[in-house]
Simulated assay, not measured.
Amino acid sequence: MKEAEERDAELEKIETALLLEGIYQRYGYDFRDYSSSSVGRRIRHRMRLEGLDDISSLLRNVLHDSDAFRRLLGDLIIPVTELFRDPEMFLAFRRNVAPELRKLPFVRIWHAGCSTGEEVYSLVVLLHEEGLLDKSRIYATDISEEALQRARDGILPIDRMQQYTRNYQAAGGTGEFSSYYASERGIVMLKPFLRERIVFARHNLATDSSFNEFHVVFCRNVMIYFNSELSNRVHGLFYDSLAAGGFLVLGGRESLAFTPIEDRYETWNDTHRIYRKIL
C-alpha cells in the first residue's frame, strides 16, 4: 500500500511539473517555482470542479481551451486584498516613511502584485493626505490582466465600505473616507483623481526584469506562494530596482531574514516588515 501511494505521489509530481511547464510554454505564465503545496491544492480544486480524474486531463484541456486555462488561472491567482489591509502597517508607513519621502524632489513607487488595486489606492490616499501625491508616480503591476482591469475600474464592493472606513481610520486617515468615493445605484467608485498618478501594467515577477528605479517597492503577501529559489530571484529584482535609501515593504509573514541580500538593508520597522536599502 505504501509503495502504491509513493508511486501515485511521484506520478502526480511529474504531471504537475508538465502542467506548469505547459502553461508557461503556451501562455507565458510561470508558476514553476511557486510553492508546490499551494499549487497542488489549487490544481486539485480545479480538477474537482472540472470533473477530471487526473492532472494529465487538466493539462490537455488547458492547452487546447483558453477558457479552461482562464478558469485554472483564477485558482492559481487568488487575490486576497482590501483597502488599508493591515492598517497598522499603513500607519507605520505614514509616520516613518512619508517624512523621508518628503525630502525627495519626485517619488517613484512600484506596487508589485497589486491584484485588484485596493492596497494601491490605499497608498494613494495616504500620499494625498501627506502632501506627496502630486510629486509621485505609482506603478502598479500584476500577472493577471483581469485583476489589473478591475483595478483600473476603481469600483469597490458596497458591502465592504464600513470595514474599509474602519481600516482607513485605524491607518491614521486624516479626513472623511467618504470624500474619496462616489456611490450611485449601488455602485461605489473611487474618485478619478486617485487614479491619475497610477500606471497599471502587467508584469511577471517570475520572468520579467526591472523596468525603472524606485524609491519604494511594495510587495505584500505575494512571495509566501513562492519557493526559496524564486523568492531569492524576486528579492534580487527588488534590490536592483530600488534607489539608494529606498524602502522595501513586505507582508507580515515575509522577511529578508536568510536571504542573500539581507545585509544590504536596514530594518526600518520589523513589526510591519519595512526595510531600507543601505548598500
Score class of each variant (00 low, 15 high):
Glu213Gln: 14
Cys219Asp: 14
Leu194Cys: 05
Arg185Trp: 00
Val217Ser: 03
Phe218Met: 15
Tyr181Asp: 02
Arg220Lys: 15
Met223Cys: 03
Arg202Leu: 11
Leu190Lys: 01
Val188Arg: 01
Arg202Gly: 11
Ile187Phe: 00
Val217Ile: 15
Tyr181Trp: 14
Met223Glu: 08
Ile198Glu: 05
Arg202Ile: 09
Cys219His: 12
Ala201Trp: 02
Asn212Lys: 10
Phe218Pro: 03
Arg197Asp: 05
Leu205His: 12
Asn204Ala: 13
His215Ser: 07
Arg197Ile: 07
Met223Trp: 11
His203Ala: 07
Ser183Phe: 10
Asn221His: 14
Met223His: 07
Lys191Ala: 13
Met223Phe: 09
Leu205Ser: 10
Ala201Thr: 01
Phe211Tyr: 11
Glu196Thr: 13
Leu194Thr: 06
Arg197Gly: 04
Asn221Glu: 11
Cys219Trp: 14
Val216Thr: 05
Pro192Arg: 08
Ala201Glu: 11
Leu205Tyr: 14
Ser209Phe: 12
Val199Pro: 01
Arg185Asp: 03
His215Trp: 04
Pro192Gln: 04
Val188Gly: 01
Val188Met: 02
Arg202Gln: 15
Ser183Ile: 15
Pro192Ala: 04
Ala201Met: 10
Glu213Lys: 15
Met189Val: 04
Val222Trp: 13
Met223Tyr: 10
Phe211Thr: 04
His203Phe: 11
Phe193Glu: 12
Arg185Glu: 02
Ala182Leu: 11
Ile198Leu: 06
Lys191Met: 11
Ser209Glu: 13
Pro192His: 05
Leu205Val: 14
Leu190His: 02
Phe218Lys: 05
Ala182Gly: 09
Asn204Phe: 13
Asn204Leu: 11
Arg220Trp: 14
Thr207Met: 08
Ile187Val: 11
Cys219Thr: 13
Asn204Lys: 12
Arg197Lys: 15
Asn212Ala: 15
Asp208Thr: 09
Leu205Thr: 14
Asp208His: 12
Phe214Ile: 03
Arg197Met: 09
Pro192Cys: 04
Ser183His: 06
Tyr181Gly: 01
Lys191Val: 14
Val216Gly: 03
Phe218Tyr: 15
Ser210Arg: 12
Val217Lys: 03
Glu213Asn: 09
Gly186Arg: 03
Val199Asn: 04
Ser209Gly: 12
Lys191Cys: 07
Asp208Gly: 08
Asn221Asp: 13
Arg185His: 01
Glu196Ile: 07
Ser210Asp: 07
Glu184Leu: 00
Asn212Ser: 14
Glu184Phe: 01
Glu184Arg: 03
Ile198Met: 06
Ser183Gly: 04
Val188Gln: 00
Ile198Lys: 03
Cys219Glu: 14
Ala182Gln: 13
Asn204Pro: 09
Leu194Asn: 03
Val199Gly: 01
Ser209His: 10
Val188Lys: 01
